[in-house]
Structure formats: C-alpha cells, structure tokens
Design a protein around this nucleic acid. Structure first.
Lengths: 111, 111
DNA sequence: TGAACACATGAGCACTTATTCATATATATT
DNA sequence: AATATATATGAATAAGTGCTCATGTGTTCA
C-alpha cells in the first residue's frame, strides 16, 4: 500500500463490507447464472412451469443434463417443482434473481 | 416434449429469444462475477480508483493474482485504468454491471 | 546506462465444472 | 406383480478455473 488513492466518488455509495458469508452467497448465485445451459433453462422458466422432458426437448438438451442442472438451481432455491403423477413441473422460485438475469440480458442485447 | 405445459403467467414477460451471441455475453458477464476474488475487487472499485498494489494490499492478495483478475475484468470492459508514471489506477468501467453486483449483494444480505 | 519500482505474462498444478452413459428410483397402469 | 413413463443419481471424462512461482516489460530517476 503506497500512494495516491482517490477518495470515493459518491460518499454514501461505498463498498459494503462484504462478510464471508455474503461473499460466498453472491459468488454462488452468479456461478449459477454463469452457465449457458442454466441461463437458457431459467430464461425458459420465465414463461411458465415445465416438465423436465419438455425443457430438454425445447432446449435440445439431454434429459440427464437438464436434471443435473435443475438440481443445482433447486439447491440454490432458484427453481422449485410441483409433482403431478410421475411428472415434475419446474418453475422459478426467486424473482429477484430472475430480475437480475433479465437485466443482464437486456444489457447484453443493447451493447 | 409431451403433455401439460402451462401458459406463461405474464404474456408480455416471455423468454427473450436469446441468440447465441447474447447468451455468450451474458454467461461471460456472470462468470466474471462468480469469483469471490473478482467480486471483492469490484466491490472495492465501487469506492474509487486504486493501483494494483493497493488493491492487493487492501484485499490481502498477491500482486500477480490481482493482476490476472484485473486482466479478465478489463477484457470484459468491466474495469479500465489510467496511467500515472509507473502506476496504473484501476477503476470501474460498467456502472450497469456494478449495479447488478450491488443488487446481488443487497439480496444476499437480507436473505 | 543501469537500478528500482509497478505491473504483466506464461507455465504449472490442484481443483472444479459440464456433459454423457449407465443405472436407479418413483409413480401410475394393467 | 410386471411394465411403462418420468425423473434422479453416480461414475467417468474432458475442459475450464484460480492461484502461485518465476520471469518479462515498461517507466522513472540517478
């Protein structure tokens, strides 16, 4: 640590202290959103609830692959499911995160 | 693809089609935000501009490590730098992404 | 020109991740 | 109970990631 660091531009806008727990949670959340496959799944779940096989079919992915990714998303409580017979209807479970995703997509499009 | 998929809840809120280029850009952006080290760096850069060595010192990281991560962030145009003599002052370069980060931190804290 | 400082780069390694294949589980139907 | 359907799980593998060590580059100053 040496010399000329500038003062913060906006005083009330400083770095939140970021304790370890928060840091971990944030990084986990972004990690979940960093996979193209998971992004496509979440983007689809914006529009409603779908069975695993439908998701796989619509996104042209293997059933096993989708199942694995859904588990990751479910463990992070980004999606949930509802059973009906043998089929599980998956849907979003965190509209705040879905909002972040939508913002990111908007941002990437007009770029 | 088989049976009972529900209609979208909000008609105008559907999945954006997500072409490959956008998908890639979004995943790259989230990947950048998925590393605790990069999150800490960006969170620090919220408060002003800093030389590499200061960042390393304040975050208790190696200079080489910080330099590598800054390169990743710079390639994605999330940070930029300004030269003054031999020292490079790094600062944020995408306030939209910084906003997403702040939102995510807020969300993770009140959870 | 040569030394000192600030930073970047490349190689290497441990670790993680995404996908696929094979198989297991659970529910419904006959 | 046997079968079919929908989904989950586990192992294996290929690719990617983050950090560190050693070294290179560029700027300043004597």
């Amino acid at each position: 640590m040496s010399s000329g660091q500038q003062p913060a531009k906006e005083p009330g806008n400083g770095a939140q202290h970021l304790d370890d727990k928060t840091l971990f949670a944030v990084s986990q959340m972004f990690k979940a959103l960093s996979s193209p496959t998971r992004i496509r799944i979440l983007n689809l779940l914006c529009t409603g609830e779908y069975p695993v096989n439908d998701i796989a079919g619509m996104l042209n992915l293997g059933q096993t692959c989708v199942s694995h990714q859904l588990r990751i998303l479910k463990d992070l409580r980004l999606v949930k499911y509802r059973r009906e017979g043998t089929t599980l209807y998956y849907s979003e479970d965190d509209h705040h995160v879905m909002n972040l995703l939508k913002q990111a997509i908007e941002h990437a499009e007009h770029q």
